[in-house]
């Protein structure tokens, strides 16, 4: 992947590693949500998790969605400039500037920005030992230097974050569904 060039903020972003989910391996157990919320808050609730699993039950598709460190950096829409891109390429939140307006939450095209107790939640890779990757029982999750995916195609997605996650995952699931229709089975 090439380094990400921001459109309106000047300077090049450093490439930031992201959590990738292999949709073929995700079984929808939500252990990533459990460990993410437990790691950061010492408590369990998906509302506290920075990674969320979209479970499209009627078509058998599951996929965890976390910040993809997208090319567009849509969340930087922040009206009080509480959000910036940090030195490592991460999304950095200046808590004292945040007014809890949730515009960043709404702006993310794939619903990957959480919100809990008046603050948005961004994946911080657990300061190095990424808990969701470590505990994923199927190794569907990996921590890779592949940030910079363009989410332009999803920018016009309607709806709330959960609906956006579902819409994003439905598109990601098309090749897998096609392979099933063509006779692909779990061991074939």
């Amino acid at each position: 992947m090439t380094a990400v060039i921001p459109r309106d903020r000047g300077g090049a972003y450093k490439e930031y590693p992201v959590i990738k989910c292999d949709i073929r391996l995700c079984v929808g157990c939500r252990i990533c949500e459990v460990t993410c919320s437990a790691f950061h808050f010492g408590a369990v609730s998906p509302a506290l998790s920075r990674i969320r699993v979209a479970k499209l039950e009627e078509i058998g598709i599951d996929m965890a969605v976390a910040c993809v460190s997208c090319a567009e950096k849509s969340c930087l829409v922040c009206p009080t400039d509480a959000l910036t891109v940090g030195e490592e390429g991460e999304i950095a939140l200046a808590r004292e500037l945040c007014t809890s307006c949730q515009e960043c939450v709404s702006a993310c095209p794939v619903g990957a920005v959480g919100f809990y107790e008046d603050l948005p939640l961004f994946c911080d890779l657990c300061d190095g030992d990424v808990s969701c990757v470590r505990t994923c029982p199927t190794d569907a999750l990996s921590n890779v230097d592949e940030g910079g995916e363009s989410l332009e195609a999803f920018a016009a997605s309607d709806g709330n974050p959960a609906e956006k996650r579902a819409a994003y995952v439905e598109v990601q699931g098309v090749p897998l569904r096609d392979s099933w229709a063509a006779g692909q089975r779990v061991d074939s």
């Binding site: 079984v27 058998g60 599951d62 199927t138 089975r185 779990v186 061991d187």
Partner: peptide
Amino acid sequence: LRRDHVVKPKSCYNCNIYCSRYNV
């Protein structure tokens, strides 16, 4: 069943066995 009809394993909440399955 696994050979002919199972397309992927499925899991209940917070389970490292994920013993369920999705069939087509």
